[in-house]
Amino acid sequence: MFSYCADPETLDGLTWLSCYLTTGKHMAFYGAFGTVLLLLAITAPTALAFGFGGASAARSSLAPLRWVGKAYISIVRGVPDIAFFLFFVIALDQGFEWLRHQALCPGWDQPVRQGNDFVVCQAAKLPLSSAPQWIHEVYGFFLAVLTFAIVFGAFAANVLYGAMRAVPRAQLETAEAYGMSQRQCFWRILVPQMWVYALPGLSNLWMVLIKATPLLFLLGVEDIVYWARELGGTKTPQFTDYPHGDWRMWYFLALLVFYLAFTRVSELVLERIMARLNHGQATSGGDAQRTTA
C-alpha cells in the first residue's frame, strides 16, 4: 500500500502496523464488512416480502393457498438453521441446474446422478464453469440471500400472521360497514395497522439475522468471521511478511465492537419507527403519546 512497506522486517511500531493493516488480505477483510451489510440490506426486505406472502397465504380464504402458507411457516421454522444451510443450498443449486439441464441439453444420454456425483451438461452449469470467479461469488451470494430470506421469511410470516390477527376486529367491521371490499379492507385498514403489533417480533428477527450472517461461510461466501479467523491465526515467517502469534482475540474483539455498534444503531432506528407507528393507535404506546402531548 505505502511505499515504505516494501521490506516490513525493518519496520516497527506504528509504521509496521500501518503496513500490516493495509495488506491485500486486510482489504478483503474490510470488504467483507460491505458484503455483510449488503447481504442484510438485500435479505431483510426480501425476507419481509416472503413473510408477508406467507402470512397472507396462511389467512387466505382459499383452502389450498392456506395450506401452502401454513406448511411453509411450520416446516421451515421447525428445521434447524444449520441443516437448512448445509442441505438446502446444495439441493437448491442442484435443482436449478437440473431444470436448466432438462431445458438446454435434450440430447444428453447419461444419467444426472452417477453414484455420488451430480453431473449435468456443461451448458447447464450454473454459473458456467467458464464464467469469471466474481460471477460465481455473486451467484453464491444470491443463494445465500435466497436461503436467508426463506428461513427468516417463515419466522416473519408467523409474526405478521399474529399481527394481522391482533388488529381489532371492530376496525375491519367498520370498514365493511362503509362498503369496502375484502381487498380494500386488507390493504387500507389491516395492513397499515398491523405493523405496530408486528414490529417487536420483527425487530427480534432483525437482531437474530445480524448475528446469523457468519453462516455465510457455509455457503462459500467469505464473510468477516472467516477473515478474522484467517487473519488472526498464527502466522509463521515462511509464509508471510508479517509473522505474528495468535491474534484472533483482537480480531474477534473488533467484530464484537462492530456487532454491538450495529445492534445499538438498529435499536435506535427501531425505537423511532415504533414511535411513529404508535402515533394515533389504540395501543399502550399510542396512549402514552396522547397523554404527554
Binding site: G24, K25, M27, Q122, A123, S129, S130, E230, Q238, T240
Partner: peptide, 28 residues
C-alpha cells in the same frame, strides 16, 4: 462457446494449510 467452456477447470482448495495451500498477504 460451449466447447470453450469445457476448458476451464475449477480447482478447489482449503487455503488454510501452509505450506500445502494458504492465503498470502495479498489475499490470494
Amino acid at each position: 462457446g460451449v466447447a470453450m467452456a469445457q476448458d476451464t477447470v475449477r480447482m478447489g482448495t482449503e487455503g488454510a494449510y501452509p505450506p500445502y495451500n494458504f492465503i498470502d498477504d495479498n489475499g490470494d
